[in-house]
Design a protein around this nucleic acid. Structure first.
Lengths: 167, 167
DNA sequence: GCTTGAACCTCCAGTCGCTGGAGGTCCCAT
DNA sequence: ATGGGACCTCCAGCGACTGGAGGTTCAAGC
């Protein structure tokens, strides 16, 4: 037998090692981000070092906000070291641009919400500035130039906070 | 002053007036954010001024990133002017906190990605720093303290950019 | 060998805020 | 009367998972 430090991990081991949940690992396999591992006779997955590495790569890329198609192409590139890495640069640049757009938007939102919230000192809803500003769909109070000045509201770049307090 | 001219809008009129698509308007109705309007004999929706106002409110709140449960409670408050607006403040404050969290995270991500992208001058994927850093799941290069230093990666506050360049 | 019970398996539905398509009906101008 | 665009309902899909139901396997302890 070629004893080549053939570390074998269960899906739970992999989960503990990477912080990615078993369900998510299976999901990545179904999405072909992670190659299908060997199985025990009973059908349990058996992972090796390369799975661990690859899952680390995926997780890190996800943490950086890369979408799955992006990760796919980054993984593809990582699998082919002889190729030119221009594509990786393109992906990274696009990601930076996307982040910048979100940052600008969030900063504008923060400014407006905090201003509005500060303006209203509390009391009856009738006189609540928060509600008033929301109700004013011409929102003349609004300082954000990229928000409603033109008629096009199709941008929808902001997901509301369902982020949760981590579990 | 009750400006109650009985303006009647079709769903398309409302869509044009607010920038919210007909499908989305119907969706809001199904979600009970927007009251069910009158109908023609044939079943077409007929909206009035209050629908227009309310839809404007909803749209504005969405633009500010409020989640639908939040919008529900804000609308509820707006429907009851005699109530105390403390709840609105709570919602707004929570939203600011959520935005701040996202901002911090996005700023850290931007810093890391742009640094990594700048470091790699191009060439073969084999030597690509972008891929290298991603592959390093201990990521010693990383400057973001809130990202991987502790074992807990469950925050997941960042959605990848499928936002499109629509804005 | 037998018994636990935790971990694993597959499949499927739900999350959030819409969006789009199928297949059919209505309305209004000509 | 007709043409065609706007409208109707219902349902599936997006991204990136998550959780549950219902069943099987594994490893440890006796």
């Amino acid at each position: 037998m070629a004893t080549r430090r053939a570390a074998a991990y269960s899906i739970g081991d992999l989960a503990r090692a990477t912080g990615v949940k078993p369900t998510t690992i299976r999901f990545y396999e179904a999405e072909s981000l992670l190659p299908a591992p060997a199985r025990t006779e009973g059908g349990h997955r058996i992972y090796g070092q390369r799975h661990l590495d690859r899952l680390g790569f995926i997780r890190h890329a996800r943490e950086l906000g890369f979408a799955m198609p992006d990760i796919r192409s980054l993984l593809d590139l990582a699998d082919h070291p002889e190729r030119d890495c221009t594509a990786a640069h393109g992906v990274a640049k696009a990601q930076i641009a996307a982040i910048d757009a979100k940052l600008r938007r969030l900063q504008a939102l923060r400014a407006e919400i905090s201003r509005v919230a500060a303006a209203c000192g509390g009391g009856r809803a009738e006189e609540c500035l928060i509600l008033e500003v929301l109700a004013d769909h011409r929102h003349g109070h609004c300082t954000d130039p990229g928000h409603g000045a033109d008629g096009d509201g199709s941008s929808a770049g902001v997901q509301p906070a369902h982020a949760s307090a981590g579990g």
